[in-house]
């Protein structure tokens, strides 16, 4: 498949027909319009044409920075940090569904199930907590202080 230049014809040009050009021009224009519309009024839901909003929110220079984590207690009473790899769900995804977890903490039970499936050799989970750590900022500079708050908890019944 590599070819060694025997078929190369640098002086020749394979051109597109009128229809080929028209279709490509149309597709390019439609996609451009979708990207503009997505950026103007779209949301993440409109992927892949939603707004490119990575790091697009403004954070107050002196408001505390929040960092979310999951902690779990297993049936032996051991408490540990529940990492992304233990459940299959990423931290940012937990944050993205935070309002659902608050409204219905039983959804955390699904994460306990996922943990038990993925860690069959370990004791099952008795409790999961969503904990938010607020790093204190002073004029944009971390003061070294932080506070941890329990946001939502779920107990296996």
């Amino acid at each position: 498949m590599s070819g060694h230049g025997t078929l190369s014809r640098p002086d020749t040009e394979v051109r597109l027909g009128g229809r080929g050009r028209a279709v490509r021009l149309g597709v390019t224009a439609v996609c451009a319009l979708l990207v503009v519309a997505g950026t103007l009024v779209g949301q993440d839901d409109d992927f892949p044409f939603g707004p490119f909003r990575m790091y697009s929110t403004t954070d107050d220079i002196s408001a505390p920075v929040a960092s979310t984590r999951l902690e779990a207690i297993d049936t032996t009473g051991r408490r540990f940090r529940l990492s992304d790899g233990m459940t299959g769900m990423r931290r940012a995804e937990i944050e993205g569904q935070m309002s659902r977890f608050r409204a219905d903490p039983a959804l955390l039970g699904g994460l306990a199930e996922a943990y038990d499936d993925r860690n069959a050799d370990r004791p099952p989970l008795a409790r999961i907590e969503i904990i938010i750590r607020h790093f204190d900022l002073d004029a944009g500079r971390p003061t070294g202080r932080y506070t941890d708050t329990l946001d939502t908890g779920w107990d296996a019944s």
């Binding site: 790091y55 954070d59 920075v65 944009g140 971390p142």
Partner: peptide
């Protein structure tokens, strides 16, 4: 180009002087 536009849409002009990068590095 549209990432800059999204920053102005969601973050406003305040994005420029906010703590977005501080937050990113802390996290």
């Amino acid at each position: 180009f549209f990432a800059a536009w999204a920053k102005l849409r969601f973050g406003g002009l305040d994005w420029l002087t906010g703590a977005t990068l501080t937050r990113a590095v802390l996290r």
